[in-house]
Design a binder for these strands. Structure first.
Lengths: 207, 207, 207, 207
DNA sequence: CATGAATGAGGGTTCATTCAT
DNA sequence: GATGAATGAACCCTCATTCAT
């Protein structure tokens, strides 16, 4: 509470600038990919000069890193929403899948820059490790849900199943984001079918 | 008379060089991604001078294109093997999945550069269209198998299902290639479970 | 309100830089010819870095183009001076020749880079067409003078005579620029004799 | 006489090769200009490999030099023909001009590569000095003719007049070679008028 | 703090020249 | 002698980064 009061005007303005830069970067990365994105273009998109950009970020990689962090945080929010907005253990499988998937898909649809950043072929260690926390958290949460809903699956296998699940819906994202209208809806339905087809046998296993 | 047999020795050597360059390019692209890969580094990896590269390829993009073509051809072979090595309609689902997946996974495991090339964010039309033929062929083959094995699925839905299937196993590839030994085997088993879980309901649908 | 007067300081500096670069380019082109002139050398001669060159010109050709345009403009001024500074029809032939030649010779003496640029063997369309306007204008003016002073020359022949005249004094330029002092003066006298010897019979022809 | 007998077959073949290379070089220089002409292209035009080219010429400049020498020799022949084929002092001015100009124009029309070589902006000392001998010889001859036909011109002025004459018809060459058919003939007539207009007053001067 | 001109290392590419075959 | 693949220095140009204003 007292912390907010201390924040001077300056910092608030700087924080806004940073967000504007990251917005611009997300847009440019999404349009051109990480490598082809130039810092000058990002600066222009943010409506500032290249020099100003470097007042806030020490280099291009740092922009990517910060953007990644922001994505990660937002993604984390989407995940928390996915996992904490209601009971994931009680309801039937289809409903649980809806609850989990919808916020995550929504996030990906709303943030096209996300993939440009996290899909780059030469992702440096720093970036990969920025994504690690959510990946780890996500993995943990999915494992927890799995443990509760499919107690028959032995622990060693469970981690693997969780990874497979995560990979599945991350892989399906482009199929969803690249289609429009009814086709997108139909795609979402298919993704859910895939997950259901994979999870149903797990849930029915004996302990 | 002998004119048709034009410098067979030379051509053989040239052909070998081209393959060496493509091998080097595959390695460098895999390590650094397309953008960060420098032609000088590719030349060095191929054990030749930068100038020599350009005796065989007119520019960097042409190297990527040729490499893509080679991948496409090899991939095409893997697909043909996957789809033509035996009956895919008669056998039970698990066996059919084995027949389809194994050669494709083998190819991907053997060619780590493949993804670096076909996953780049700014893939130019030429490259994308190089991949198109196999994608299209693959789609067609999967659809054909689906039509035979799951006649209950209406035509419009079938294309979508085929795309989902392809996306699934392409997405699973990194999970497989990034793991080793028993874990890799277990991963392969999981991938097959995913496919089975998605296909079984389709096959059981009424026409 | 003040918006129209956009960064006058900056623009002035930029304009000066452009002129400095063109000065440097004129010098380097004159010394080395277009092909052998390197952009780095032009930049060095202008006292700036190679990168800065490209802040003002998009490529080497553009520098040549701009330099050509500047030459053309200056040359145009010399021509206008040559043709508009007084009556060219009334006076005797020798005086008219003085009025025409002197400003053009002066321009060529002052701008040694001019020929390096407009004499290059592979002159691209852009450059040739940059020179076209003055050539055409010059031709037109000479023809007009001819029409007035030598009405006996039929129209078809007049164009040819104008071209010959222009070629003569353009060809004499190196003879003049490469000599010094009295020799130069004597050369100028000779050039004028050539023109006079060619024009006198034309003027005396009957209509 | 005995010299020819000593020349072995080899050398004869080598000599022929050299001429073929120079023919090719003349063509390529004419088409592309000196700088843009590549040694590989010259070799290809000569129907040999780049390596073979260097068996005969140590570098690109040496080709230009040898070609220049050959041009100079041929030009010299044209000049000798121009000046030695008949009396240049007895006949009337127009006839004398015909005798002098026609062979030189013929040479230039027949050898388009000539100009590409001798008009290059960065002509090295070697090349310039290759042309020097004919220029000097030509100058001497023109001066001699002038001395005989226009004895009234003082010696100091005579050299200058000779240079002007040479420059005039060298400058007119492109006007002639760039036009075709009747227009070319008409141009030749004009060139001769220019020379006549310049020479007539000289011849009529008192000693 | 903002600006944007300036920097300069480094990338893709060309081509005169060499050398193993 | 002939071949043509191989070489590598040098060119044009880009762009992340700096710095004078």
């Amino acid at each position: 509470m007292g912390e907010q009061v201390r924040a001077p005007r300056r910092q608030a303005r700087g924080e806004r600038r940073i967000q504007e830069i990251l917005d611009a970067a997300a847009k440019v990365f999404a349009e051109a990919g990480y490598e082809a994105a130039t810092t000058n273009r990002i600066a222009a998109a943010a409506g500032i000069s290249p020099g100003s950009l470097y007042q806030f970020f020490s280099n291009k990689e740092a922009i990517a890193q910060a953007l990644a962090d922001r994505f990660v945080e937002q993604m984390g929010r989407a995940h928390r929403e996915a996992f904490e907005s209601g009971d994931l253990v009680g309801p039937l499988l289809p409903e649980m899948i809806d609850r989990m998937l919808d916020p995550i898909l929504a996030f990906n649809i709303a943030n096209p820059g996300f993939k440009a950043l996290f899909a780059r072929p030469d992702m440096p260690a720093g970036l990969a490790s920025a994504a690690r926390p959510i990946q780890t958290a996500l993995l943990g949460r999915v494992e927890a849900v799995l443990a509760a809903r499919a107690p028959g699956v032995p622990e060693g296998e469970r981690a693997r199943s969780a990874r497979v699940m995560i990979q599945i819906f991350q892989a399906m994202v482009p199929l969803v984001t690249s289609s429009r209208g009814d086709e997108r809806e139909a795609m979402i339905t298919e993704v859910k079918k895939v997950l259901r087809g994979y999870l149903e046998p797990l849930e029915q296993r004996r302990a």
